[in-house]
């Protein structure tokens, strides 16, 4: 059985119905779904009904000069990227996985990506949320402003809760300007480093780590395993991938630093490489080990007392 609400009111009605039904049947649980491409937590959801927010999709409000955007939950990452790219901006969520995934699922699972260190994690990029909790209450917290401390932070509680506290209907997100100059470099390392027991006199890995902590910190730096280079169609011997961005003078200095890394050769690659990286190197599904301390149990209990939202997903006991 599947339900597909068209708006937050219908969504709230369906959740409320499920909560009421739960008194009579064990199958009242709802499996919350966006595009249906999201990562498996490794735990089965005990739900008789799939509740798809797939119809709640699209850009709701976007004033580029505010550097914020409001989107419905099932808007895909690709749609978000296209809408913002047009104005020289991006939403730095850029999570592991491909861009068919939805913004709602990215935020619900707080899935970060290779740019999180420099551009922010989902928990830091979500400005506000409209959501329906397990009792069918419609919650609207935060909004289209970048600073907001009016009341207790429901947005933080809901972000990364895997839909077990509330079903996300709509999101307000922080945007950033795309860097004026945006370059990606494959760092091809000397063989000596990888000979068994042998280490090159130079340690390009350490040099790059130092680079990434310094004033020219890149947008992303990723260590690659030997076999990754072929899978990503990168030059043979590529052991690290670096993305640098900023104004012309900044990028020139960053590039010079990369090119002078002893024991490694910098080879320019296409920015699209990162899309392949996010898809191919996404961490595999593994059973999520949730921290079920007393406070977490109480949080779940208070926001979804009937246990209708993704029951079992986080591996909690009955």
């Amino acid at each position: 059985m599947s339900d597909q609400p068209r708006n937050v009111r219908e969504l709230a009605g369906l959740v409320r119905d499920a909560a009421t039904r739960s008194a009579a049947t064990r199958d009242a649980g709802l499996r919350i779904e966006g595009a249906g491409t999201w990562m498996d937590s490794g735990h089965p959801v005990r739900a008789g009904v799939t509740l798809s927010v797939g119809a709640m999709r699209g850009i709701v409000a976007y004033t580029p000069a505010d550097l914020t955007i409001t989107v419905d939950a099932a808007t895909t990452l690709a749609e978000l990227d296209a809408a913002t790219r047009e104005h020289g901006q991006w939403c730095p969520l850029l999570p592991w996985g491909d861009d068919r995934g939805t913004v709602g699922a990215t935020v619900a699972t707080a899935t970060a990506g290779p740019f999180a260190e420099s551009l922010g994690r989902p928990r830091d990029l979500v400005l506000g949320v409209e959501a329906v909790d397990g009792m069918g209450r419609v919650l609207g917290a935060g909004g289209r402003v970048v600073k907001n401390v009016a009341g207790f932070d429901l947005t933080r509680a809901i972000t990364g809760s895997w839909g077990t506290l509330a079903v996300i209907a709509r999101l307000h997100l922080r945007l950033r300007s795309r860097p004026a100059v945006d370059e990606s470099w494959a760092m091809v390392m000397d063989d000596a480093r990888d000979t068994p027991g042998g280490v090159s006199r130079n340690d390009p890995g350490a040099a790059l780590r130092e680079f990434s902590r310094g004033p020219h910190a890149p947008l992303a730096m990723l260590d690659l395993a030997r076999e990754d280079a072929a899978a990503l169609a990168l030059p043979a011997g590529t052991r690290a991938l670096v993305r640098i961005g900023g104004n012309g003078a900044f990028v020139a200095a960053s590039r010079a630093a990369l090119q002078s890394t002893a024991g490694a050769t910098a080879v320019a690659v296409e920015p699209a490489t990162w899309d392949r990286v996010r898809t191919r190197l996404a961490p595999g599904d593994r059973a999520l080990t949730w921290r079920w301390d007393a406070l977490s149990r109480r949080l779940r209990e208070r926001f979804d007392p009937a246990r209708v939202l993704n029951p079992g997903l986080l591996g909690e006991e009955g």
């Binding site: 994690r121 207790f152 932070d153 809760s161 080990t289 921290r291 406070l295 977490s296 949080l299």
Partner: peptide, 21 residues
């Protein structure tokens, strides 16, 4: 007395909810 974190290793963002309370 309890520890709180941002839930990055699999948990609710209890610390995020606490900040600003």
């Amino acid at each position: 007395v309890i520890p709180l974190d941002r839930g990055d290793d699999g948990g609710y963002d209890l610390l995020g909810a606490f900040v600003g309370s």
